[in-house]
C-alpha cells in the first residue's frame, strides 16, 4: 500500500510542479522534497544535476542567444524552467530510490507478473550483450570497416533475438507446468 501511495503522491507532485509557474513556490517544493529525501539528498541532488545539466545548458544558452537576434528574452523564464526541471528530476530520483516497483504495480496482477519477468531477464541479457561486445573486441585485429561493424552489430542483435525467442518459450512452458494458465489455453500452446 505504501508503494502505491508513493506513486500516487508522486503523480500529484508532478502535476503540481508543472501547473505552478512561480519559481519561489517551485524552490520551496524542492526544499520540501530534499528534506523528505533526508540523508540521501546530497547524492540524489548530485545525480539529478548531472542528469539534466547538458540538456538544460543547451536549451538555456540557445534561449539566451535569442537576445542577440533581438528577441525578447527574460531571465524569469530561465530561472523558472531550470528550477522546474531540477525539481522534477529530483522528485523522480527520490521516488526511484524509495519505491518497490513491484508492489506499486500490484494493482494489476498481470502487470506485476510482467514486470517481475522483465526485471529477471534484464541481467542475463545485459551479461550476454557485454559478452558479445567483448568477443567482437577480442577478435578485432585492426580498426574495422563500417561494413564489418554493421555486420557485427546485426549478428549481435540476431543472437539476442534468438535468445529472446527461446527464453519466451521456455518461460511459457515453465509457467504452464506450474499451472499458471487456464486449461483451455493449453490447446494452442507452443511446441518446441
Amino acid at each position: 500500500m505504501k508503494d502505491r501511495l508513493l506513486l500516487l503522491g508522486y503523480a500529484i507532485a508532478v502535476v503540481a510542479a508543472t501547473s505552478v509557474h512561480n519559481p519561489w513556490w517551485l524552490a520551496g517544493g524542492l526544499l520540501v522534497v530534499a528534506a523528505l529525501a533526508g540523508r540521501q539528498a546530497p547524492t540524489i541532488g548530485w545525480r539529478a544535476l548531472r542528469a539534466v545539466l547538458f540538456f538544460n545548458l543547451v536549451i538555456s544558452i540557445g534561449y539566451a542567444a535569442g537576445a542577440l537576434f533581438g528577441q525578447a528574452v527574460s531571465l524569469d523564464y530561465l530561472i523558472l524552467v531550470n528550477t522546474r526541471v531540477y525539481l522534477l528530476i529530483f522528485l523522480t530520483f527520490s521516488l526511484a530510490s524509495k519505491i518497490d516497483i513491484l508492489r506499486a504495480l500490484s494493482f494489476s496482477r498481470n502487470l506485476s507478473y510482467l514486470v517481475t519477468l522483465v526485471l529477471s531477464q534484464i541481467i542475463p541479457f545485459r551479461r550476454l550483450f557485454e559478452d558479445l561486445r567483448l568477443a567482437a573486441e577480442s577478435r578485432r585485429l585492426r580498426r574495422l570497416r563500417l561494413r564489418e561493424r554493421y555486420l557485427q552489430s546485426a549478428a549481435a542483435a540476431v543472437h539476442l533475438f534468438d535468445r529472446a525467442e527461446h527464453d519466451a518459450r521456455e518461460i511459457a512452458l515453465a509457467m504452464r507446468s506450474r499451472g499458471f494458465f487456464q486449461p483451455e489455453a493449453t490447446d494452442n500452446a507452443p511446441g518446441d
Binding site: L114, V118, D167, A168, R169, T186
Partner: peptide, 12 residues
C-alpha cells in the same frame, strides 16, 4: 499463452 513471457523477454 506465450504472450506474457514474450512481452517480458522482448521488453528486457
Amino acid at each position: 499463452e506465450t504472450l506474457l513471457p514474450r512481452l517480458a523477454v522482448l521488453t528486457a
